[in-house]
């Protein structure tokens, strides 16, 4: 995944079953952001792998003042990259079991 300067990780162990997971996002390299960034620290949130899309999370973070509108794409891409990796790992575990 491209280094967007925004880090997204699992905030807790993924049990591979629950559709809702806990993620944690923070800015590792604020020079990669286009807008002025207020250092908010690590932002933990839940994400439903089946019903939600990263773009809506990123937009809510902008609406909450964590990021500027100009950076909504970079934030949603960072979340998307991590979510894709989690889904890939889950599928790999399932296919491994099969």
């Amino acid at each position: 995944a491209e280094d967007t300067g925004v880090r997204v990780e699992l905030a807790e162990e993924d049990d591979g079953k629950k559709s809702s997971i806990a993620l944690r996002l923070w800015v590792e390299d604020q020079k990669k952001l286009k807008g002025k960034y207020k250092d908010s620290g690590a932002i933990e949130f839940s994400f439903d792998l089946e019903t939600e899309v990263p773009e809506s999370i990123a937009q809510e973070m902008v609406d909450s003042g964590f990021f500027l509108e100009i950076d909504v794409k970079i934030v949603s891409k960072s979340i998307r990259d991590r979510v894709s990796l989690i889904k890939w790992r889950r599928q790999r575990i399932v296919s491994g079991c099969n």
């Binding site: 300067g5 880090r7 923070w26 800015v27 590792e28 390299d29 604020q30 908010s40 620290g41 690590a42 932002i43 933990e44 949130f45 839940s46 999370i57 809510e60 973070m61 609406d63 909450s64 964590f66």
Partner: peptide, 27 residues
Amino acid sequence: SSAAQVVHSAGRRFIVSPVPESRLKDQ
């Protein structure tokens, strides 16, 4: 302060806490 802060937006909860120094790149 270093305590976690909770922000609500559109029914979603964001929990904000300090990032450990070790996890920050050359900021």
